[in-house]
Nucleic acid binder design. Structure first.
Length: 240
DNA sequence: CGGGTTTGACCGGCGC
DNA sequence: GCGCCGGTCAAACCCG
């Protein structure tokens, strides 16, 4: 557990710029230990959304009860877009049909409601709204799971290359309290160096936040001390 | 003309 | 009971 965390942290902190900018294709999942509140607005938002989602689980809305949507399937993604891009669309490879828009109380940006239009029976819905703190961040909340495959990966890739979004996407899973940094949606190419730099900066900030959170976690420190002392004890025995 | 978007109306839960 | 709020509906509109 600890070693896995360390490896993940090492992965995040040791990405060579070239690789991190242009050739990363995997997803990196980070166990979300008690992520401490700090001054970073994006991470505050992540924490708040996780708590909000957990509240949704314990107090499901009337709509969800009526439509029998599984709350555990809900997760939130964060997508960086250009500030000049006013479109609420988050291109994730699926076909979405907008069925409503609403201005919410806590955010001046309108919230858009989408349903998956690829398969008529697909129960997936998503809500897209710009972050109140950082309007370049689109917050997309997905509910349900697709009962079909991704429609057209090739077209998706083409769109990604010509579009301005997806330097990174973060997933928040309400059921198992994990944060996933998805680098497959970054949409970077050789003409997009600025976003590569932005991604590196994000990785640096993310690594700092994780390190900060872990070092403040008493359980993690205790486990780390135990692991180190255990290893030292082993080494001492070997030498003897 | 068909499919997608817009937008005002409506519904139901919640708090006071 | 009433108003607020988030979510959804559906008619009108737009566009290829």
């Amino acid at each position: 557990m600890i070693i896995a965390l360390q490896n993940q942290l090492m992965d995040l902190t040791s990405f060579p710029p070239a690789e991190s900018s242009f050739s990363m294709t995997g997803k990196r999942k980070i166990q979300n230990t008690e992520m401490n509140r700090n001054n970073d607005s994006l991470f505050d938002r992540i924490h708040e959304t996780r708590n909000q989602t957990e509240n949704d689980i314990t107090r499901p809305s009337c709509k969800r009860l009526r439509e029998d949507i599984e709350p555990n399937n809900a997760h939130t993604t964060y997508t960086r877009v250009d500030a000049s891009d006013s479109s609420p669309m988050v291109r994730d490879g699926y076909q979405w049909r907008k069925y409503g828009q609403k201005v919410t109380k806590d955010n001046p940006s309108p919230r858009a409601y989408f349903r998956c239009s690829y398969a008529p029976s697909c129960p997936v819905k998503k809500k897209v709204q710009r972050s109140a703190e950082d309007r370049t961040v689109l917050v997309a909340t997905y509910e349900g799971e697709h009962n079909h495959s991704r429609p057209s990966p090739v077209g998706f890739t083409d769109t990604m290359h010509e579009n301005t979004s997806h330097p990174y996407v973060m997933y928040l899973n309400s059921s198992n309290s994990t944060v996933t940094l998805d680098l497959t949606h970054q949409g970077l190419n050789s003409n997009n160096c600025d976003k590569g730099i932005e991604l590196i900066e994000l990785q640096r900030v993310l690594a700092e936040k994780i390190a900060s959170s872990l070092t403040k976690d008493e359980n993690f420190n205790a486990a780390l001390i135990s692991a180190i002392s255990g290893r030292m004890f082993q080494d001492t025995q070997v030498q003897n």
